[in-house]
Design a binder for these strands. Structure first.
Lengths: 158, 158
DNA sequence: TATTGTTATACTCTATAACTATA
DNA sequence: TATAGTTATAGAGTATAACAATA
């Protein structure tokens, strides 16, 4: 605990960051930015971005899922989901049809092209994620995921 | 029908998230969103947001720092820093003057009002951060911060 | 020539409110 | 009335390119 006090966390430029490196929020933000940057560059060849990838993954694992349920699962508002789904449909990766039992809802599915694309994305994404996980050591990744999950679940019940 | 929930990673709505909860990038993003939401609500009364707070903290710890060095430290481009600094200056929390030795550069300082505001922000921010840290257990916070720092600066000795 | 601060611009994600059509 | 999908809009973060003043 003593090391926290006297360690002057400076960046390459010799700038003192003060309280920031001690804040979970700041460190989460910086880490997320770095990984997102790598992710974005890696999947650019597939012409997709992070939110769209998570949507594809959800649809793949939950065939006939409705946009409303995707919204709740990923924390993307229904309104903001609309252009994302439209983009995926226009790209031929997902299909929409009206739910048989509820005329208001839509049933979403991956197209064969979408399944193939998701499979390619899995390889790319796991490669990126493994590269970061490797720097954390074997239990580091599991420990980090466990802590983040705790953070997520503990916060939502407030 | 009610299968073991633990083997399958489902959210409250019964949606299968598949690979996502195993991805460091996804979990970082979700966690960061939750904390940022809390942070945003907590500091709204001070009429400030996360990037502006980190800028105030940097200036406070590095009097006479130049915008260019803030840019490098926080990963905010010089161009995007301009409106943020203008907003802080307009709010009376920072002051700018031309660097004495370099006519191109500016020397940034907190105003007395800015120092007082930062002090109030410290209390608010730490309260929010402590609330999340508490859910992680005694060593959880330190472990998390260490892992994130490792992620940021590549592999250093644990 | 290179750097600092700046302007302008575009894109993405996020956050609300209100509308339609269905239930 | 309540919900699902949609439209519209505004805000904020991010990313480039280009410019004037200065080094």
């Amino acid at each position: 605990m003593e090391k926290n006090r006297d360690s002057r966390r400076k960046l390459a430029g010799g700038v003192e960051l003060g309280l920031l490196p001690r804040l979970v929020g700041y460190m989460l933000r910086q880490s997320q930015l770095v990984i997102h940057h790598e992710f974005h560059a890696a999947v650019k060849q597939e012409n997709i971005r992070a939110p769209q990838f998570s949507i594809l993954e959800i649809i793949h694992r939950n065939p006939s899922i409705r946009p409303s349920d995707i919204s709740k699962s990923l924390g993307i508002s229904r309104a903001n989901l609309v252009p994302l789904l439209a983009e995926l449909e226009a790209g031929g990766t997902i299909s929409r049809k009206t739910d048989e039992t509820d005329g208001r809802a839509q049933a979403l599915h991956l197209t064969p092209s979408g399944v193939a694309k998701l499979k390619r994305l899995h390889r790319i994404v796991q490669t990126v994620d493994e590269r970061f996980a490797a720097s954390l050591g074997p239990d580091g990744r599991e420990t980090l995921l466990r802590l983040l999950q705790t953070l997520l679940h503990g916060a939502t019940s407030a």
